[in-house]
Design a protein around this nucleic acid. Structure first.
Lengths: 148, 148
DNA sequence: TTTAGTGCAAACTCTTTGCAGCTAA
DNA sequence: TTAGCTGCAAAGAGTTTGCACTAAA
């Protein structure tokens, strides 16, 4: 269903349809959460073993440009991509113990961000809010000390 | 003055003093704002041309570990480092037009973050809040469209 | 039949590591 | 004199690019 944004984008920018690109896009849009290019490649290869990493990267960039994917680094080298569910925004809690990524939405924070930006005549187009720390399980397991 | 944290850290972890490392650390701590390893290297080389990039990286990692530096990627490949002014935390507005980085502090946002985390039994150790968009000047110059 | 899509290998960028010589303690 | 410190070169990791071939329109 979000696929139509991609089709429109392709059409209006002089790109073509291709079955391989479609498969990558559909596989990506069907997942929830975060995935790296390598991980997505593995998923796509289950059905189409001849896909290359290059095409996965190119497709992910394309999806990012047409607003269907969000690229995040979580302050590491590797890029993680997540499908953008229509119009909804969320932020992340990243557990430094087990690597789990939790999501949350908080309208009050977003409103405060806008007012801070407004005071400085700054127009926000997007933002990143990442809370690093330890999830319940890792706190219980004593993983919150010296793990970083 | 913050130098004593470094000295203490070195002593208690079996490291040694060295004039080169001291010069890198002092140069870094004297700046305000964000700097890449390459940029810091250039600054240090003004006084000591034989310093290598490796040592700059190693010193920045050291400063990060002892709490005097903060590493941020601003969602790009390159790492930027900033001296941590004692006990104070701020967040960033990043202009996509001219690259300017503005800083702000907002206790209300931090409090909300804590309450969100608390609800999910998550213990925050640090966070990243980056607001991307366009500063006043770039909005006036019409740079807010199609620049990304 | 023209031009975009693709995989492979190579290039690139940023960062880290191995190593031999240097230096603080 | 014993480690840690250092620069250089090389290796790594992740991503992008050049190129020849393939395929959509």
């Amino acid at each position: 269903m979000e696929k139509k944004f991609l089709t429109e984008y392709l059409g209006s920018h002089g790109y073509r349809q291709s079955s391989r690109r479609n498969r990558i896009a559909e596989t990506f849009l069907s997942i929830s959460g975060h995935i790296s290019a390598e991980e997505l490649l593995a998923l796509v290869r289950e059905r189409d073993p001849r896909v290359g990493l290059t095409t996965v990267y190119r497709t992910l960039k394309l999806l990012t440009r047409c607003g269907l994917a969000l690229e995040t680094k979580f302050n590491r080298q590797i890029s993680m991509f997540e499908p953008i569910p229509e119009g909804k925004h969320h932020d992340h809690l990243i557990c430094l113990g087990c690597g789990t990524i939790l999501e949350f939405e908080n309208q009050a924070i977003e409103t405060l961000q806008e007012s801070v930006a407004g005071e400085m005549d700054f127009r926000i187009t997007r933002h990143i809010l990442e809370l690093y720390g330890y999830c319940r399980k890792c706190v219980q397991d004593g993983l919150q000390d010296g793990n970083e």
